[in-house]
Amino acid sequence: MTGEAADPNTAGTPAAADGAGAGAEVIRVERVSKRFGPVTALRDINLHVARGEILGLIGDNGAGKSTLIKILTGFHRPDSGRILFEGTETRLRSVAHARSLGIETVYQDLALIDGLPVYLNLHLNKELTHGPLPFLRRREMRRRAREALDSVGIEIPSVTAEVGQLSGGQRQAIAVARSVHSDAKLLLLDEPLAAMGAREGTQILRLLRRLKQRGDLAIILIAHNYSQVVDVCDRVNLLQHGEITFDRRSADTSVAELLELVHAEYRVEA
């Protein structure tokens, strides 16, 4: 984190000795709480994710998932608690600050421009130009776009194809590739499998497995399909009424158990 030690808004703690390696902790949230007027959105949240790990974050609507993600992206600031990024306590001042550290988010709306080709969407707001002249280095951007897609195994026939002509799975994959191409260290995925068919969902799950195998990226996946969560995630956190009530390795849980936990509060005793 270049320059963070000198930042008056950032308190420093010693970085982990293995902070650069696979398996090193990327982010840790400790006792984070957030209120909006009389409403408590988050209560004493504790969460951590390491490089090469996918954490599944589940919970019903209104549980606090969106608030937590907005805190991790710098959009909201917590009322209490602290966030450690790569071993250093950090106050995320803004979305731009979070992105400068390597925290990238792919929302459901994807933020792609349908009328632009794939390679320009991958370089959106980061276009390459010829020195001081405002002329795009299109050939170089096409080359880098193809490399970025190939590096994570995304099959797009042509980087010059308009994004609006692609399938939902391909569009989602491009949005993920753009974040990874931006040297992300923590990738937050907000319902990337929502409203997708089985074939497109399989494509995204395959992409997530490839990203996990690379070992240089921590991922938090918000999803409602518990079968997919258990399949692709290393751990599962359940968020209920602003609190994480469940944290377990995916290998040690099941879809049936997750469904039982999520829906137990709605059952009415006979």
Rank of each mutant, 00 (worst) to 15 (best):
G3T: 13
E4K: 12
P14F: 08
A17G: 14
D18N: 11
G23F: 11
G23H: 12
A24D: 05
V26G: 04
V26W: 10
I27L: 13
R28W: 04
E30S: 12
E30A: 08
S33E: 02
K34W: 04
F36H: 07
V39F: 03
L42Y: 08
R43H: 14
I45D: 04
R51V: 02
G52F: 10
G52Y: 07
L55S: 01
G56V: 01
L57W: 12
I58R: 06
I58W: 05
G59Y: 01
A63Q: 12
A63L: 10
K65P: 12
T67W: 01
K70Q: 12
K70W: 08
T73I: 02
F75I: 15
H76N: 13
P78Y: 15
S80H: 14
R82H: 15
I83Y: 03
F85V: 05
E86Y: 01
G87I: 15
R91L: 09
R93I: 03
V95L: 15
A96P: 02
A96Y: 02
H97V: 02
R99P: 15
R99W: 02
G102A: 07
G102L: 14
I103S: 12
I103K: 02
I103T: 09
T105L: 10
Y107C: 03
Q108S: 00
A111N: 13
L112A: 14
I113D: 00
I113W: 00
D114N: 10
P117A: 00
V118P: 02
L120Y: 07
N121P: 03
L122N: 01
E127S: 10
L128V: 14
L128E: 12
T129D: 05
G131A: 11
P134T: 08
F135R: 11
L136F: 05
R137K: 13
R137L: 02
R138Y: 08
R139D: 03
E140G: 03
